Each structure stands twice: as C-alpha cells, then as structure tokens.
Simulated assay, not measured.
Amino acid sequence: MPNWELKNCCDHDQVAFIVTIGVFTFVILALWRTVLLTPFKLITVFLHETSHALACKLTCGDVEGIQVHANEGGVTQTRGGIYWIILPAGYLGSSFWGMVFILASTNLITTRIAAGCFLLALVVVLFVAKNWLLRGLCIGFIIFIAIIWLLQETTKVHILRYVILFIGVMNSLFSVYDIYDDLISRRVHSSDAEKFAEICPCPCNGVAWGVIWGLISFTFLCGSIYLGLVILS
C-alpha cells in the first residue's frame, strides 16, 4: 500500500494517490458481487437517500423518514420542498459526496473533517431511520469509523485516509453503476429519472435524464481525480 506520509517529492504523492485509487478500483470490481462489499454498497444508498433528505430540508420541506433495504434500494419520505431539486439530488448527491471524500483524503486535516461530518450524518439519520437495517448500518459505521479514528490518533495504524478514500471511490463507482443499471439499461417507471421527466418541461424521457445524470456523475469522478492531483502538486 502506498505510504502518503512520505513527502520526498510532489510526484511521489501524486503517484501514490493514483496507484491507491487504482488498487481500490480493482478490489471493488473484483469483489463487486460478494458480501464483503455489501456494507459499503449500502452506505452508498445511505448517502443517496441522505442527499434527497438534505435537498428537501434546503428547499424548506420536511423529512418524515429514511429507509435503506437489503436489496440495495432505499426510500426517503418527504413533505413539501422543491420536488424537481429533491429528485436528482439522490444520484447526483451521492456522486458529489464520493468526490468530496476522494478530495478530503489528500490531506489529514480534511480527512478528519470528512470523517467528523460523516459521523454526524450517521448520528442524525439514525434518529430519522424508519427500518432496523438502516439503524444497524448507522450504528455499525459509527463504531467502525470511531475505531479507525482512534487507531489513527493513538497508534501507528494510520489508515483513516485510506478508509475515507475507499468510501469515496466506492461511492463514485457505485453511483455511476447505479445510474446505468436503474435509469439507462432498464427503464424503471418508478425511478427518480422517470418522475423527474414527468414534471420537467424538457422533452427528455427518463432514460435521457439517466444519461445526463450519468455523465455528470462520471464528471464528478474524473474531476475528483484531477483536482486531487492538483492539490498534491
């Protein structure tokens, strides 16, 4: 595993960043259909639904509950707010958070900030969760991140940055895949894109909006890698 603690030259940091992302991408793709990645897939669904909830609150709506299901689906119950902002916030929001996590991992201070914000989000959602799977997911990741953070501060096991980066890469890849699977390769009439197409005056159908959202999500992924290299230069 590349060691980001060595600061011999800027090129080393950039190479380590790219190599680590490459290793994580390979591991994620190799283990994609195994149960080992299930918790991280579900945390991506968590961020998807949390993005819906955040968009609802920012547009003066109320969040009545959030659910995450074992089949990697989720539901956010909202009342009020601006619907055409809330709908795309799930897919695009989870892609955005993936980018934020990737960029945060380039510096230990920003890594701590990202981990702290992630813990806060888990605690908040724990109290609005409407099913036990989501509650268990929140509790499990609160304990997991807290242990990793404790090891970071009290031992020589400095892996908090790698954990945040892994969650960021996982979230970015899963978001792009989820958009393709749900909105492009098969037309789910209850999907966010289909609902968005119904209320948007643009003549695009759900599949077209899926393509647009997919391109935006892929841009977030590529942008996070480019900006990470710029930060480390």
Rank of each mutant, 00 (worst) to 15 (best):
F118S: 09
A89S: 15
A129L: 04
G81R: 05
V75G: 02
Q77K: 11
G80Y: 07
A114P: 07
A104L: 00
F127M: 02
C117K: 02
L87R: 13
I102L: 08
L134K: 01
R135I: 12
L151D: 06
G98R: 01
I109E: 02
C117L: 15
I86D: 09
L151M: 04
I102Q: 10
T154M: 07
H158V: 07
F101K: 04
G74P: 04
L133P: 00
S94F: 02
I148P: 12
C117S: 11
C138M: 13
G140F: 13
V157Q: 09
A115F: 02
G116R: 09
I139Q: 14
W84M: 13
I86T: 10
A89D: 06
A129Y: 09
Q152H: 04
L122Q: 06
S105C: 06
I102C: 12
K156A: 12
I82A: 09
R112F: 13
M99T: 12
L160D: 04
N107A: 00
I102F: 03
I159R: 07
A146E: 10
Q152R: 04
Q77L: 13
W84P: 06
G98D: 10
P88T: 13
I86Q: 11
V157A: 11
A104F: 01
F127L: 01
Y83G: 06
L87K: 15
G81L: 07
H158G: 01
F144H: 14
F96T: 09
I109W: 08
S105V: 05
L103G: 13
G136I: 06
V125R: 03
I148G: 08
T106R: 12
G81W: 04
F118H: 00
I109A: 06
T154V: 08
L160N: 07
K130E: 03
I148F: 15
T106V: 15
A115R: 05
L122F: 03
F118W: 11
S95T: 08
T155G: 02
R112W: 12
I147W: 11
G80N: 11
L108T: 08
L151W: 08
S105P: 06
T110C: 02
F141R: 05
F141Q: 03
L120H: 02
W149H: 08
V124M: 08
W132F: 14
T76K: 05
Q152L: 00
I86W: 09
V124W: 05
I145T: 13
N107R: 00
G80Q: 05
A146L: 12
G140I: 03
G93F: 04
T154D: 03
L126E: 15
G81P: 05
T110F: 09
L150Y: 15
F141L: 10
R135E: 07
L134V: 03
F101A: 12
V128M: 13
S105E: 10
W149C: 03
G140Y: 14
G93P: 03
H158A: 07
L108I: 10
T78I: 15
A104N: 01
G136N: 15
F144R: 10
T76C: 13
L133H: 00
R112Q: 11
L92T: 07
L150F: 14
I113Y: 01
T155S: 14
L103W: 11
I145H: 04
K130Q: 05
K130F: 00
